[in-house]
């Protein structure tokens, strides 16, 4: 059963990856190209004599925005589809009496908030030319740390909501859980150090387009996984239950 769910999760992720590639290509590549053009202008301004000796590229721009981008997003999406299926296997039947489709949609929405919205508010995605190379270690650690804190806050909020359910009822317990999540996340965001490495001359419009594209990509990814995995999981779970059912009816 878990094996079937895992395969279907990866399938939903792969499907999402194809859509994400389209969105990344159409919305994401233009600001990336503009950011790279800005980077080159900066380099030329800093070393006026070197204009004609561009160092040979390890990977061409066409490969980067073609098969490279495709590989990156499809692997990312498929891997997250698989992880999503495993989380679903734990969550299904344990967060209320939600159907497989509802569980999948709710879980994907929660994942989008915990994995994208919260970390991106503190450490927004950046195009090329933004970021000092020697801080990449710190920035990666902070970014991953923010995701870990965000997921932990989500689990604490869920536990708190469940605890309060008998006294407060579903609506108010959910609100209380949401409040706990917000409090924890805000506290973490105030405590963690800020990162601002946007060059002074960097065009604000390009930064905005890039970040909107990046968040849009994640929104398409999680919406697709959440909506595609639900029906696939339902088919698996229905098959798994058929045995029990014929028993009950006999």
């Amino acid at each position: 059963m878990v094996r079937s769910l895992l395969i279907r999760g990866m399938l939903a992720g792969f499907l999402a990856g194809l859509l994400v590639f389209g969105v990344a290509r159409i919305l994401g590549e233009p600001p990336v190209d503009r950011a790279i053009a800005f980077e080159e202008r900066l380099m030329k301004a800093a070393h006026p004599g070197h204009e004609h000796q561009d160092e040979p590229e390890l990977v061409s721009r066409d490969t980067q925005r073609g098969i490279g981008l495709f590989t990156g997003v499809v692997v990312y999406a498929t891997a997250f589809g698989g992880l999503f299926a495993l989380v679903f296997a734990f969550a299904y039947g344990r967060i209320g009496k939600l159907s497989p489709r509802a569980t999948s949609a709710l879980l994907a929405a929660a994942t989008f908030v915990a994995l994208v919205v919260v970390p991106d508010i503190k450490y927004p995605p950046n195009p090329p030319a933004v970021g000092a190379p020697d801080t990449i270690g710190d920035r990666t650690a902070l970014f991953v740390g923010m995701i870990v804190v965000s997921i932990a806050a989500m689990m604490i909020a869920l536990a708190a909501g469940r605890r309060l359910l008998p006294q407060l009822g579903l609506w108010n317990a959910s609100l209380a859980g949401g409040g706990v999540f917000l409090l924890l996340v805000i506290a973490a965001q105030l405590l963690l150090p800020a990162v601002d490495e946007v060059p002074e001359q960097f065009p604000a419009a390009v930064l905005w387009q890039f970040r909107i594209a990046s968040i849009g990509i994640e929104a398409v990814l999680w919406a697709t996984i959440g909506l595609a995995f639900g029906p696939l999981a339902e088919a698996v779970l229905r098959r798994g239950q058929r045995g029990q059912w014929s028993h009950q009816r006999a």
Binding site: A24, G28, E29, V32, E57, L58, V59, T63, Q64, R65, G68, L69, T71, G72, V73, V75, Y76, V116, P119, D120, Y123, P125, N126, P127, P128, A129, V130, G131, P133, I136, R139, T140, F143, F210, A213, S214, I217, E218
Partner: peptide
């Protein structure tokens, strides 16, 4: 090579890069 190959995806998926 891997960094350069998945470079655009890495940026657009929100990972710190560069």
């Amino acid at each position: 090579y891997i960094h350069e190959f998945v470079h655009d995806g890495r940026h657009l998926l929100g990972f710190p890069c560069h």
